[in-house]
C-alpha cells in the first residue's frame, strides 16, 4: 500500500509533496482525542494503580507493584478469575456452537431464511441491561413448589422437573447461567459472521467436491469448515473481549453479589464504594492487559494480511 505513491509519475509526485501532510492535519483531531482518551488515560490509570490512593483525596504516592501483588493473594480476585474463565468458556463455546449450527442450517436455502436470519440476530440490537432485566425473571432461582417461576416453572409445567435448578445461585457454576443470557444475545451475531464466511466459499469448490463423490457432510467437514477458521478466530476475539469486559449484564441479572463477581464489578465496587482507587485502577489495567494479549496479535495479523490483499 505504501508503494502506491511510488507508482505515480515523478511530476505528479512533486506536486503532491506540497500537500503531503494535508491528510495528517485532517485526522489530527481524532489522533489527539484518541491519544488523550485512550492512551493518555491508560497511562494515568497506570499511575493511579502504582499509587496508594485510598479515600476521597487523590494521593499519587508511589508504592510500586503493591496493588497488583495484593490482588494475586486476594481471594475475591481469585473468584473473579474463576468466574471470568467459566463465563468465557461457556459463552464463547456456546455462541460458536449455536452460531455455526444455525449458519449451516441457514446455508441450505430453506424457506423463510430471511425471517430466521433476522430473528436470530435481533437480540444483538438490544442493550445488555434490557436483556438482563428480562432474564433476571426467567432465571428466577426459587425451587420450592409454591414459588416456582421463570424457566423453573416452565420446566415444571412441561413435566421436566429434573431440570429445575437454582440458575445463577448454583454454587461455583452460577455464572454459567448468566452466560446463557449472553449466548442468547450474541449467538445470532456469531451466526451472521459464519454465514458471511459460508457464502464466501466459492460454489465451484463445493461442486467439484460433490462431483468427486463427496457426501454433503464430507463437503462441510473437509472443504468448508477448514475455510471458516479465520471467521472463528474473529468471532473468538470479539466474543472473548466482550466476556472479559462483562459488567452490565451481570449487574442487571443478579445484582452485585460476590459469587457472581467479575473483575469489572470488583473494579467498580472497590473504587467507588470502598474508595480503594489504587486497587481499582490495578484491576482495570489487568483487564486491559488480558484484552491486549488477545487483541494486539489479532490487529497485527488482520491489518497485515488485509494490507497484502
Amino acid at each position: 500500500m505504501i508503494t502506491e505513491n511510488a507508482s505515480l509519475k515523478p511530476a505528479a509526485r512533486r506536486r503532491l509533496n506540497l500537500g503531503k501532510y494535508a491528510g495528517f492535519f485532517l485526522v489530527l483531531p481524532s489522533i489527539i482525542a484518541v491519544g488523550i482518551f485512550v492512551y493518555g488515560f491508560i497511562a494515568w490509570s497506570v499511575r493511579v494503580s502504582l499509587s496508594q490512593w485510598k479515600g476521597l483525596t487523590p494521593d499519587y504516592t508511589f508504592v510500586g507493584l503493591k496493588n497488583y501483588i495484593n490482588l494475586f493473594s486476594d481471594p475475591r480476585f481469585m473468584v473473579d478469575i474463576r468466574n471470568t474463565v467459566i463465563f468465557t468458556l461457556v459463552f464463547v463455546l456456546g455462541s460458536l456452537t449455536i452460531g455455526l449450527t444455525l449458519a449451516i442450517l441457514l446455508d441450505q436455502h430453506l424457506p423463510g431464511e430471511a425471517f430466521f436470519r433476522s430473528l436470530f440476530l435481533f437480540p444483538m440490537a438490544i442493550s445488555f441491561i434490557v436483556t438482563g432485566v428480562v432474564w433476571r425473571w426467567m432465571l428466577n432461582p426459587a425451587i420450592t413448589a409454591d414459588r416456582l417461576s421463570g424457566f423453573n416453572l416452565l420446566f415444571h409445567n412441561l413435566g421436566l422437573d429434573f431440570l429445575i435448578n437454582q440458575w445463577h445461585l448454583t454454587p461455583t457454576w452460577g455464572i454459567a447461567a448468566v452466560a446463557l443470557a449472553a449466548i442468547w444475545q450474541m449467538s445470532g451475531y456469531t451466526m451472521a459472521l459464519y454465514l458471511g464466511g459460508l457464502r464466501a466459499v466459492p460454489d465451484e469448490l463445493r461442486e467439484a467436491a460433490r462431483v468427486d463423490g463427496a457426501s454433503e457432510l464430507q463437503v462441510y467437514r473437509r472443504i468448508i469448515l477448514p475455510m471458516l477458521w479465520p471467521v472463528t478466530l474473529s468471532a473468538v476475539i470479539i466474543l472473548g473481549h466482550i466476556s472479559l469486559k462483562v459488567f452490565d449484564l451481570i449487574i442487571a441479572v443478579a445484582g452485585k453479589q460476590l459469587p457472581l463477581d467479575v473483575p469489572a464489578i470488583y473494579m467498580w465496587q472497590t473504587t467507588f464504594d470502598g474508595l480503594f482507587y489504587g486497587r481499582g485502577a490495578s484491576i482495570g489495567i489487568l483487564l486491559l492487559i488480558s484484552v491486549a494479549v488477545l487483541i494486539i496479535p489479532y490487529l497485527y495479523y488482520s491489518l497485515r494480511s488485509g494490507g497484502e490483499s
Binding site: 481524532s30 488515560f41 494515568w44 493511579v48 469486559k245 467498580w268 473504587t271 497485527y300
Partner: peptide, 21 residues
C-alpha cells in the same frame, strides 16, 4: 499506516481501565 492500528486498539480496551481518569 501506523495511525490505523493505533486508533483501532481503542475499540477493544475495557473501559474499566480508563474509567477513573
Amino acid at each position: 499506516n501506523l495511525v490505523l492500528p493505533l486508533l483501532l486498539f481503542g475499540m477493544f480496551i475495557p473501559y474499566q481501565s480508563i474509567l477513573i481518569p
